[in-house]
Design a protein around this nucleic acid. Structure first.
Length: 713
RNA sequence: CGGAGCGUAGCGCAGCCUGGUAGCGCAUCUGCUUUGGGAGCAGAGGGUCGUGUGUUCGAAUCACACCGCUCCGACCA
């Protein structure tokens, strides 16, 4: 059939597009029948015209509104249109017959449009259908009714988030895991209205985030995004660190830099480019990094055949690598700087970016480019260098625990996890809320490996020439990922006050009214007074959020970002000399947000600093408890390991502390392979070791140390 | 590089199976109402449907290729 011959019943002139849109807007249609429930239901459905729209011949004269609900399969089996199953209705009565769909299904409400409705442009008849989109009828979109209301049905006890709390926990961003959708159809008394409802799952709490930690990986991404920490960039694997995330990094830098200097180190800066030949000097080192190196081969672009590309005539004589770490280029400098034992120890540090071409990046945890601090030192004796290695490990441990409120286990890495070219590698390992380990910092004793390769020598007191012993150590922006996964909750990030870019955020409740000025003034005074106070050795960092967006929106933004204390001040607070505050670490009392009123003066003079200290300590205590109570001991055979790590992979699994004989070479490889079958790795051998050991879990040989094993990032 | 999924408005997603006018929610803008706080109502603006080629009278929809993203592997101090 020639399509042009079809009656253009539903074609609108483009200029009348909005009329068409309105015609498609089911609420309007349903509003016409006067059933508020249906009208609201429509808002949570996806609406589309279905194929029958174009089959007016199927419409029966006199139909106005027809509603039917059916599981998808039934709908398919029964043909494409439900309209014939439902009887004709008067607009004022709503649907007369409703099916029942249990589980995720398709609800079809057919609306026959006829010229009795207010869209004369449409003419004729047709019908629209919409279907549930799973869950409680809301899309997985966090922006839809889940957070902001405007959806859900009145009178069913909780579908309208703005009034009744969040309709349904929607832990899922994907359709395949949709929650069952309960649709019930209630036959109304004769002459009354029928109601189409969604019966929500009983989980009414409304969260600042649309996802919970039950899906940890997705939750993590949601926090990074919603807390304004970072985003992905056009360059694969590289990230843009946003002001709030960078602010955290600046706090980390500031304090760690202080501690690094306090232990006698000085900062320098070395080039980002390293001659390829430098990297090649230390055999293990090359091998370890070769596979993830970015290489610069040209120094000019040229327009060839309309395409900008590296100019073949501008090829570098020797390619440069973008530093994955700076041992080699700093070692080169050391070899020139160090002549005599009087030049030792040489203790330096640099804050820099490094590039490692990672296969699977994750914001903060593993990115192609990241920021870090790398310390490099040279010493006269191995003992001195070892002592330095341990000293810096301890700096990392205490920094992590004191400042990030992130408890860690310091220990030595097994041979197979060593830094390429190191004699010994030590790490601090933190436990995330999903039980996985995060290597949060490393400290390497490099022995004379690099000194040999690069000629870092000195004349000793006896006049002979000796090789230096070197160390290197670093922590990176990965720490931020650790903080997120250690402290975050279902409302977003929770920042330890010590590293929060803003420790207290003041949100004035402004309403575009004359008294706004007074509220603002009151807040400014408050911020000024708080700014005079100190905590964690620094002046308080306080922000007055005067951004011109809704106050409520501001509050939740700061909740998601994890500001430790959020203060709200309304006109009545200002008049009464009070403030209202929320502490982020104890945001809720049950399901409700806990908001406390207190006198402004009392808050400034007594509460503010005390609360910050309390929050810091509280976050640490929680994390400490999680770490301590999830390291299982007493497992002595492989079956015990398998048992502990069996079952649901996403379920929380802590670490095991087991005894082993510290095998090397092929034997260690076998252990590694075995562990890999359960996705496990050896995290480290804690510095604190018991006096006696059980036999080796892997070989049965006498044990020589205890190690932690677990899943890791 | 292997397996799976995805790419449609600023954001989140329907629509694709069965080709026939580009949709929904949030956000944005406007007006009215509301004001101890995650507002309501009405209206409006906003889209090369990832890119290309093919099939077709007609492609968001079907086919092929490519690009990109996510997850699982491989890889990773």
């Amino acid at each position: 059939m020639d399509h042009r011959a079809r009656p253009p019943l539903y074609r609108l002139h483009p200029a009348r597009r909005h009329q068409r849109r309105r015609a498609l807007h089911l609420p309007h249609r349903l509003a016409a029948c006067g059933d508020r429930s249906l009208r609201r239901a429509a808002a949570v459905f996806r609406l589309r015209l279905c194929a029958e729209w174009r089959r007016p011949d199927r419409a029966q004269p006199g139909h106005r509104l027809v509603a039917a609900a059916a599981p998808r399969r039934a709908a398919a089996a029964g043909g494409h249109c439900r309209q014939c199953r439902a009887g004709p209705l008067d607009p004022g009565r709503g649907p007369e017959r409703l099916g029942r769909a249990a589980g995720a299904g398709r609800l079809r409400v057919s609306v026959l449009l006829d010229d009795g409705l207010d869209q004369p442009d449409l003419g004729g008849t047709g019908h629209a259908s919409f279907r549930t989109c799973g869950g409680h009828g809301l899309g997985p979109d966090r922006h839809s009714a889940v957070r902001h209301g405007g959806a859900g049905l009145p009178g069913d006890g909780g579908l309208s988030p703005s009034r009744h709390g969040r309709a349904v926990q929607h832990p899922d961003l994907r359709l395949r895991d949709r929650r069952p959708c309960h649709i019930s159809a209630v036959q109304a008394p004769r002459g009354g209205l029928n109601h189409t409802r969604f019966l929500p799952e009983p989980s009414p709490m409304q969260r600042a985030l649309d996802i919970t930690r039950s899906r940890f990986a997705d939750w993590y991404q949601a926090v990074v995004r919603d807390a304004d920490m970072a985003e992905t960039s056009p360059v694969r694997g590289a990230m843009v660190i946003k002001p709030w995330g960078y602010g955290v990094w600046e706090q980390i830098q500031q304090e760690l830099d202080r501690r690094i200097k306090a232990t006698g180190h000085e900062n320098c800066y070395f080039p980002i480019f390293i001659p390829l030949s430098f990297i090649a000097k230390e055999a293990d080192h090359v091998e370890g990094f070769a596979k993830e190196m970015a290489v610069v081969t040209h120094h000019r672009l040229k327009n060839i055949d309309g395409k900008l590309q590296p100019d073949p005539d501008a090829k570098l004589e020797e390619p440069l690598v973008v530093r994955p770490t700076s041992e080699t280029i700093i070692g080169d400098a050391f070899s020139r700087w160090i002549k005599s034992h009087r030049d030792l120890p040489l203790l330096i540090n640099q804050w820099a970016n490094v590039v490692r071409w990672e296969m699977r990046p994750r914001l903060f945890l593993r990115t192609t480019e990241f920021l870090w601090q790398e310390g490099h030192t040279a010493h006269a004796s191995a003992q001195d260098a070892e002592a330095e290695t341990m000293r810096m490990l301890e700096v990392y441990r205490s920094f992590s625990e004191d400042y990030l409120a992130m408890p860690v286990i310091a220990g030595e890495k097994p041979e197979n996890e060593r830094f390429p070219g190191a004699v010994a590698t030590y790490s601090i390992e933190a436990m995330m809320q999903d039980g996985k380990a995060l290597q949060a910092g490393t400290s390497h004793f490099l022995g004379t490996h690099f000194a040999e390769a690069q000629g870092i020598k000195f004349q000793d007191e006896a006049g002979g020439v000796s090789l230096c012993n070197t160390t290197s150590w670093g922590v990176s922006t990965r720490l931020i990922g650790g903080v997120i996964m250690t402290h975050g909750d279902d409302d977003g990030l929770r920042l330890p006050p010590a590293i929060a870019p803003r420790q207290i955020v003041v949100v004035p409740m402004l309403r575009d009214k004359p008294e706004d000025a007074e509220v603002l003034k009151y807040c400014e005074d408050l911020v000024a007074a708080l700014g005079q106070l100190s905590a964690f050795g620094q002046k308080l960092r306080v922000l007055l959020d005067t951004k011109k967006i809704k106050s409520a929106e501001k509050r939740w933004n700061w909740v998601r970002r994890g500001a430790p204390i959020i203060i709200e001040v309304g006109p009545r607070d200002a008049a009464g000399g009070n403030i209202t505050y929320m502490r982020r670490d104890q945001l809720r009392d049950g399901d409700k947000v806990k908001s406390l009123a207190v006198g402004r003066q009392e808050f400034v003079e007594e509460k503010a600093v005390q609360l910050l200290v309390e929050i810091q300590a509280g976050l640490y205590a929680d994390a400490r408890h999680r770490l301590d109570s999830n390291i299982k001991t007493g497992v002595t055979d492989w079956a015990g390991v398998e048992e502990y790590f069996s079952g649901d992979e996403d379920a929380f699994k802590g670490w095991l502390k087991v005894s082993w004989a510290k095998p090397g070479g092929a034997e260690l490889e076998a252990v590694e392979t075995k562990l890999k079958t359960l996705k496990l790795t050896i995290r480290n051998a804690p510095l604190q070791q018991p006096a006696a050991f059980a036999p080796c879990l892997f070989t049965g040989a006498p044990g020589v140390e205890e190690i932690l094993i677990g899943r890791a990032y």
